[in-house]
Computed example of a mutant assay.
Amino acid sequence: MNTLTHINTNGDAHMVDVGDKDITERTARAEAIIEMAPETLTLILSGQHHKGDVFATARIAGIMAAKKTSDLIPLCHPLMLTKVEVDIEAQPEQNQVRIITLCKLKGKTGVEMEALTAASVTALTIYDMCKAVQKDMIIKEVRLLEKQGGKSGHFVAGETAL
């Protein structure tokens, strides 16, 4: 197992120095699922929700969250993202919404936390906008789907490391 890079030799938390790393193209994709009652999903999809376009608002929140990740997660580096994408897919047959995010940059450190933060905040925004209608929605399966770039190479969820 790799050592934790955010812990120094004294056992104290510190921000990793990425100054000597090469600039490479880096991408990360993440997802989150939010389960809800069929009536709640129908209300969102019909455009009749009293708070407006739930998915449009959640998408903007997810993009903003990716850009603010270093303000939210201790020891994360502030990054100059070149792309943030938030796709929201209604899955009525499972009474859920699937959120998939993509973050991209050319830099010295990865964008996994930005993609995960975007997915999480998108789901939280959907919850926030719909909680007056349904309080028992479930946010689940927030996870990294894929990352590329940097020394650790290419990761795809569910694939075994070689």
Rank of each mutant, 00 (worst) to 15 (best):
T24N: 10
M129L: 15
V97L: 08
H154D: 01
M80N: 13
M129D: 08
K108D: 02
A56I: 00
L116R: 11
A61C: 11
E39V: 01
A65N: 11
T57G: 00
N95H: 13
M64D: 07
D20T: 13
A66Q: 03
E35F: 13
V142I: 15
P38F: 01
L75K: 06
G149W: 06
H77C: 10
E89L: 10
P92T: 03
K51H: 11
A30M: 07
N95V: 00
A28L: 09
T160M: 05
L41C: 02
G153V: 04
M1T: 13
A65V: 09
H154M: 00
T109Q: 11
H49F: 03
M15F: 12
Y127K: 08
E89Q: 13
M113D: 05
D136I: 05
M113C: 05
L116F: 09
I60D: 00
L124R: 06
I88L: 08
I139N: 07
S46R: 12
N10V: 00
R98K: 15
E159S: 01
S120D: 04
A32G: 13
A161M: 06
T82E: 15
S152K: 14
K51P: 01
S152C: 03
Q134L: 10
T42M: 10
M36R: 01
G62C: 05
E39Y: 04
P92L: 02
M137C: 14
K135D: 05
D136Y: 07
T3H: 15
V86C: 09
G158F: 07
N95M: 03
G158T: 03
K140T: 15
A123G: 11
K67S: 04
K140G: 02
G110R: 05
K51T: 08
I23H: 14
L43D: 14
I88N: 02
G149A: 10
I100Y: 03
L145R: 07
N2P: 09
L79P: 06
M1G: 15
V84T: 13
V18G: 12
V84Q: 01
G19I: 04
T5P: 03
T3R: 15
Q96E: 08
K147Q: 09
A123H: 03
V156L: 07
T109A: 13
E159N: 09
H6A: 00
M113Y: 05
A115F: 06
E112R: 08
I138C: 13
T57H: 05
K151T: 06
T117E: 04
D53T: 04
E39D: 14
S152H: 13
E85A: 05
L102P: 00
Q94M: 11
K147L: 08
T82P: 02
